[in-house]
Structure formats: structure tokens, C-alpha cells
Amino acid sequence: MTAPFLVARNIAKRFGALTALADVDLEIRSGEVLALLGDNGAGKSTFIKILAGAHPPSDGELLIEGNAVAFSSPKDAAASGIATIFQELALSENLSIAENVFLGRELKRSIFGIPFLKRAEMRQRVDGLLQELDAHISDPEAPVGSLSGGQRQAVAICRALNLNARLVIMDEPTAALAVAETRKVLALTRRLAGRGCAVVLISHNISEVFEVADRIVVFRRGRKVAERLATETNHEEVVSLITGAHPDVRALEKTN
């Protein structure tokens, strides 16, 4: 087994008196799709926000390839190769696909010390990425506001790839999608892992998770309560882990 890309140790997050996350240990490996499951408020979103640099953890540490890292902003996380595709997609609807893919990291040439955009080159790069992903988007100049939900996911994935992301976090990528689009996004997810990316997927759809995930981690009430290989568990067990009906979870919750 390869060394994990990212290791989270004892991660905790408190908002005032509220403990959103406690004692989370997790390993994330390259080329693997890791699914995070759990009820609303189980701590999944808080956890990925910590990975994404949007929240600093209250406790614990993150190691990337064995080195401790501390993110003070999403930019730091991005610099370490972590890209997050949020549920509410952080895309600017008023900008074009190419502009969105490069937003915050534009290609530019300096003329008299003033940075000017290299629009043609950005457009070409995005065209290449869209074809590679087989995203069926012909015009990188189209405004993102005119795209369907699945196409927007593809743009967000392009953005992540363009940042040379080695860990892509996807927060419910299929939540608002029609069936055909969902299939495409799941295929994209597998293709990302196939390229050697580590993928963390948050989803509420358990059959979807079984379709793409290699490993499944269940969160409950701010704690990680289970970790299973997808091949070694089944739909029913995962549901019981999420709801807390599983004996392992009961035992755990009694001791805490």
C-alpha cells in the first residue's frame, strides 16, 4: 500500500461552546476515491472546510506527504495541492468558463509592470482540459451562468485540475443533478482518481457512493465512527453506521 497523501490526526473544531468535530484521524491516498458519509451536522462539511483551509482546526494536525501543514486560507491549501469543489460551487456565474478555470491564478504577461491577461492561451488550455474530461462543452468563452449543473461540475473539476490539484474534495457534486448528468459526474470522479488524484467525495446517496468509492468513512455527531473498504461492506451496514443503529457505533457512543 502506498504512503497516504494526507494524514489528519486528532482533528477537532469548536465554534464557541459547540464542538463540531472531535478526534478525527483519517488517511487519504492518491488514486483513491474516499467517500465521507454522515447525517446533516455530522461534521463532514466542517472537516472538509478544514482540509480546504477555510477553517483552521481548533486542535490536531494535518500532514501532507509526512510534513505538517497549517493553512490560514484556501490559497494555502491550494498551494499544497488541495482543491475543493463546494456544494454551492464557488464559480462566478457572470464570468466565462475559461475565466473561472483560471480565476485567482490567471496567466499573465507583464507590460510596463502591469499584468495583462493571456486570454488566448487560457482559452486553449481550458479547451484541452474540457476535451480530456470529455465534458461536451464546446465554447470556453460561454458564461458559466448559462451552463447546466453537470457542466458546472465539469468546469469546477477543470479548475481543480488546472491548479494541479493532488487532492480534490467534492461536496455533494450530484445533489442537484438529473440522472444523466449524475452519471457523467461520477465518471469524471473516477477519471480524476485514475489520473492519480486523491478524491474525497461527500454524498448522501449511498448507492452512488458504492459505485465510485474505494473506501467509506462514516461521521456521526462530530466523530469518525467507522471506516470500511467499499468491497468489505454493504448498503445496510453503512446505513446502520450513519443512523447509529450499528453495534460498533452504540459501543463507541456509550464510552464517550
Binding site: 486560507s73 464557488a90 456565474e93 480565476l103
Partner: peptide
Amino acid sequence: LAIGNSEEKARLSGI
């Protein structure tokens, strides 16, 4: 323009 669209999204994009 990205900030005008959504300040939060712009921040998340690393702007």
C-alpha cells in the same frame, strides 16, 4: 467582477 458576483465565492477562489 467575481467579487461583485459573490464575495464569498471570490474569497474561496483565492482572490
